[in-house]
Every structure is written in C-alpha cells, then in structure tokens.
C-alpha cells in the first residue's frame, strides 16, 4: 500500500470497506469476536494477545480451538494439529476465490493478502459481491472487505475481553452460540446450487458422526466424503438431464 494507488484501485478498496458496514456479517462477526475476546479473558490471555490472535489467525473456529486448548494446557503439537484441521477448509475457499480475482499478469504476492483475509464471512460476501465488480478492481475490493471485517473483529475482541468480567454466564453462552448459528445461516444463504446445499446437509450429519467415531482427522474426512458425495450427485443429475 506504500505506492500511491490509482483512483480506481482506491475507490474499489473503499467500496469493499464500505460494503462491510451494511453487511449482516459485520454484526455476526462482532458477536462472534465479542465471544472470542471473552473466552480469551477467561483463559487468562492478555488483551494484546487476543488482538494478535484475531489479526494473525483470522478464523473464528480456529481461534476458539486455539484459546480453549492452549488455555487448558494442551501440548503445542496437539493444539497445532487441532487448529490446522479446523483451518483445512480455508484451502478450498482460497482455491475457489482466487480464480475470481486473477487476471493475466496478476502476481502471486498480490494474492497473499486476499488469501490471508479469506475466512468464512469475507469469503461468503466476496463470492456474492465480486461478480458485480470489474475484474481489475477485485483484489482491491477484497482487501477492502478484509480490512473492514478485520477492524470490526478487532474492536469486538477488545470489547468482549473487557465485557467478560461483567458478562453473566448465560450471555457468554449466547455469544458462543452465535458462531454456529451465524455460520449456518450465512452458508445456507450462500448455497444456491444443489451441490452446495447437499454438501452442507451431508457435512452437518457426517461431521459430528466422524468425530463421534473418533477417526483421526475426522473433520477433513467428513468434509471430503460429504463434499464428494454432493459433487457426485450433482454430476449424476447433470448427466441425466
């Protein structure tokens, strides 16, 4: 961002930034990160640490796992594996997002920041809003989205951290519940194609089932099996048409 940006790039960045203000995800994100700030406080981390976890990890479920396992004294390897597994979903998200951003001549380093900003809320909104943006503006637009959501999340992390002392347990529980409910609703809204809806439904059933069976890497396997089954049903349906 050091070089002066051409006006179109800057306005695309601002358009992305402003788009987060009217997005329902900002409210959801605020709630989710208030909860994360609160649990960081409860597990004895500092407010600066909590803020850095939001900036660096930038994935709600991964942060919930990181804070609760580290705080409970789990080994570093154990924590890293759990966080890594919960973040596997970022790989296909980035793979699905980047082709929308790329143009001939786009350099790899230009994609690293949008890739870092890729998390559920940003991904869902980017997939919805990007088709309306001219391709040359999309990277800046994504960075604007990421910065907007990032600012919201950081504010919420600090707010939650200081609220934690005064928040009654039921309200903390309600804040933690925001994560699954909000993610479910947003994924539902974004699933317009049959393949996505099936993947969601199969994943909801197989995820806990695989976890209950205590297979190693259960989240990854349930995702691959559920996603692939959904994809095969979609292919079969296309073929029968």
């Amino acid at each position: 961002m050091s070089a002066p940006a051409p006006p179109s790039t800057l306005s695309a960045f601002l358009a992305g930034f402003v788009a987060t203000w009217t997005s329902v995800f900002s409210y959801v994100l605020f709630g989710t990160y208030t909860g994360i700030g609160a649990i960081a406080h409860d597990f004895g981390f500092s407010v600066t640490w909590a803020l850095f976890s939001t900036l660096l990890v930038w994935a709600g479920p991964a942060q919930v796992i990181l804070i609760s396992t580290l705080g409970a004294g789990a080994s570093l390897i154990e924590v890293a594996v759990a966080v890594g597994l919960s973040s596997v979903r970022l790989l296909p998200m980035v793979v699905a997002l980047l082709p929308m951003l790329k143009r001939p001549g786009t350099r790899t380093w230009q994609l690293l920041l949008p890739a870092h900003f890729t998390a559920v809320s940003m991904w869902v909104e980017a997939l919805r809003l990007l088709p309306q943006q001219p391709r040359e503006n999309r990277i800046a637009f994504c960075n604007g989205l990421g910065c907007g959501y990032g600012l919201t999340a950081c504010t919420a992390t600090v707010t939650g951290f200081y609220l934690a002392a005064s928040l009654p347990p039921l309200m903390s529980a309600a804040l933690l519940f925001l994560t699954p409910v909000a993610f479910l609703m947003s994924t539902l809204r974004n699933s317009r194609l049959l393949v996505d809806r099936l993947a969601l439904a199969f994943g909801l059933v197989l995820g806990p089932l695989f976890a209950w069976w205590q297979l190693g890497l259960d989240l990854m396997w349930s995702g691959i099996v559920a996603g692939t089954t959904a994809y095969l049903v979609h292919r079969l349906r296309e073929a029968l048409r």
């Binding site: 479920p61 919960s86 596997v88 979903r89 790989l91 296909p92 998200m93 699905a96 559920v120 699954p180 993610f183 479910l184 994924t187 699933s191 393949v195 996505d196 099936l198 993947a199 969601l200 439904a201 199969f202 994943g203 909801l204 059933v205 197989l206 995820g207 806990p208 695989f210 976890a211 259960d218 989240l219 990854m220 349930s222 995702g223 691959i224 099996v225 559920a226 996603g227 692939t228 959904a230 994809y231 979609h234």
Partner: peptide, 12 residues
C-alpha cells in the same frame, strides 16, 4: 463442496 462440508462439520 468440500469446503462447505467441512464448515458444516464445524457448525455441527
């Protein structure tokens, strides 16, 4: 589809 299913697993 796999990303959606993994996220669904996290939600559940």
């Amino acid at each position: 589809a796999v990303a959606t299913a993994i996220l669904a697993g996290v939600i559940a």
